[in-house]
Design a protein around this nucleic acid. Structure first.
Length: 505
RNA sequence: GGAGAGGUGGCUGAGUGGUCGAAAGCACCGCACUCGAAAUGCGGCGUGCCUUUACGGGUACCGUGGGUUCGAAUCCCACCCUCUCCGCCA
């Protein structure tokens, strides 16, 4: 979320920054709405001021029993109120429009982010490790993790798809344990050695939380949603609507009833016939109104909705939402091992084989909350914390600085870490560390202040994977395989595997 | 799920529908007294927005959203949250 004031102060700079993201200028539109909003605000406040003054005078007039003066003032306020309703509506409309527009725009790239339209513009900062020195480095044709996992009896995509569909997997035996070991290892590293605080956060969160980190409102198609419907409430509403319809259509119903009265004697049979007639009418009504009913359910009036987190960044960052934190408490360094859920709606056909792109995966997330002037150095520290995981696991990787066109919505600067995958012969993203500046803090209203001093500032938020467990599992399997399909367990993981040195069928 | 209580400034806590943004206390800041400190006294002490070169002025905010009223922290409605008791439950 952007500060209107910054746009007001330097519209050209704002548009220039957006252009780096490949967006056309928006500042004229912003300034137009901003002006309309402030005009409406000033008009409304002037009217409110007069109303408040008149009301006070009415009180004073009544106190001295001057009913004539009071009546005159009341008439004036009455007239004023008519205008005020329109002004208030205009103000609310413009405020909403401005907020919606500002909320839809991505963060502005930091000055040191390279220009570029897509991933080809990313800059490699450093490489670590030699792919050929891993056990798989000696093989002519390394197997991919799907083949390795299935041969080990540890990966079952078919069973997963029978119960859940595509992009799910069942892990078993040593592979399941390896996944657990990786998660524990990463979490221990980040908490014990890098000073992150372990958190076990909610995985289901409200709209506001997902808005705060920037996935809503623009990217809801990437998310899974969980909802519970109040069926009792729906039933009650249907009944109410039925009664209302019968009342509204009394003119049709009455002749029908009278017709029945004439043709059927007044006994039980008559009662039953009337009952049947009513049921027919209600059914007809219900058939007419299913669309409206569906609309009611869709409106959320009877549904309790929660989003499944696509990353623990959402839960961890929102820990500080609507809070004012003392500068002396910062930085906050938070980590969590959680499942993540992504619908991957825009990725059909991409990475369909294997565990690279799943609807559900585990990840150790790192989040830092810092004072504004501290976020840049914290960003460097964070990417180092993520790289350490790969170093300890003995996996080759390279660190990329993303260009302006390839960054995520909320980021002002992003480092990607890519791990070597021998089966594909390429580096694949395994971590992404972003400095979001105050972009998320504004959306969440998260501030910090120096104790004893006046005023508060928006905090800076950073997030990074440390690391994605699923993709790390893939990397370990593929890099540590030998010609027979055995997997050597990296030394760092052996304590988490009960001392096991190899996975084999 | 049922019954009850409650949500007011950093905290505690008052507030007959009319100069209430809100008493009082604590905390905090400044000043005085003091060699210094404590105690005491005096003064200050919320946030957002609009407006103003500035001093300042205005407006909104007492859980949230509606409503009644010339006027709402105060009355009405809905919702959210917290606490207590009962029931159910991993």
């Amino acid at each position: 979320m952007h500060d209107v004031k910054s746009v007001r102060d330097d519209p050209e700079a704002f548009d220039r920054a957006l252009a780096r993201r490949g967006l056309s200028p928006v500042s004229p539109e912003i300034l137009r709405i901003d002006l309309a909003l402030r005009t409406a605000q000033t008009a409304l406040q002037t009217a409110q001021s007069r109303r408040n003054e008149a009301s006070r005078q009415i009180g004073a007039a009544k106190a001295r029993k001057d009913e004539a003066a009071a009546a005159g003032l009341m008439a004036e306020v009455e007239a004023l109120k008519g205008d005020m309703a329109g002004m208030a509506a205009e103000e609310a409309f413009q405020a909403q429009a401005l907020r919606a527009l500002l909320a839809s725009l991505p963060n502005l790239p930091a000055d040191d982010v390279p220009e570029g339209e897509d991933e080809t513009g990313n800059v490699e900062l450093r490489q670590h490790g030699d792919p050929s020195s891993a056990p798989a480095g000696r093989l002519n044709r390394p197997r991919d993790h799907v083949e390795l996992g299935e041969r080990l009896g540890g990966m079952d995509f078919e069973a997963a798809s029978r119960m859940s569909g595509a992009r799910f997997v069942v892990l078993k035996n040593g592979v399941a344990r390896l996944e657990r070991a990786l998660g524990q290892f990463m979490l221990d590293l980040q908490t014990r050695e890098h000073g992150y605080t372990e958190v076990s956060p909610p995985l289901l969160v409200k709209d506001e939380a997902v808005f705060g980190t920037g996935q809503l409102p623009k990217f809801k198609e990437d998310l899974f949603v969980a909802q519970s419907i109040d069926w009792e409430g729906v039933k009650q509403r249907v009944a109410e609507m039925g009664v209302a319809w019968v009342e509204a259509n009394q003119a049709q119903i009455t002749p029908l009833v009278e017709d029945l009265r004439r043709t059927i004697p007044e006994d039980d049979q008559f009662q039953a016939a009337v009952q049947a007639a009513i049921e027919v009418l209600v059914d007809r009504y219900a058939a007419f109104d299913t669309d409206r009913l569906q609309g009611l359910i869709d409106s959320g009036e009877f549904t309790e909705r929660r989003w499944l987190i696509p990353t623990a960044e959402v839960s961890l960052t929102n820990l500080v939402r609507e809070q004012i934190i003392g500068d002396d408490q910062l930085p906050l360094r938070l980590t969590a091992l959680t499942h993540c859920f992504r619908s991957e709606a825009g990725a059909s056909g991409r990475d369909t084989r294997g565990m690279i792109r799943q609807h559900q995966f585990q990840k150790v997330e790192l989040v830092s909350i810092t004072a504004p002037e501290r976020s840049a150095e914290e960003h460097e520290r964070m990417v180092t914390c993520a790289e350490t995981v790969l170093q300890r696991l003995g996996l080759a990787y390279r660190t990329m600085l993303l260009c302006s066109g390839d960054m995520g919505f909320s980021a002002r600067k992003t480092y990607d870490i890519e791990v070597w995958l021998p089966s594909q012969g390429v580096y694949r993203e395994i971590s992404s560390c972003s400095n979001c500046g105050d972009f998320q803090a504004r959306r969440m209203d998260a501030r910090c202040k120096t104790p004893g001093e006046k005023g508060s500032r928006f905090v800076h938020t950073l997030n990074g994977s440390g690391l994605a467990v699923g993709r790390t599992l893939v990397a370990v399997l593929e890099n540590y395989q030998d010609e027979s399909g055995r997997i050597a367990v990296p030394e760092a993981l052996q304590p988490y595997m009960g001392g096991l040195t190899h996975l084999e069928a």
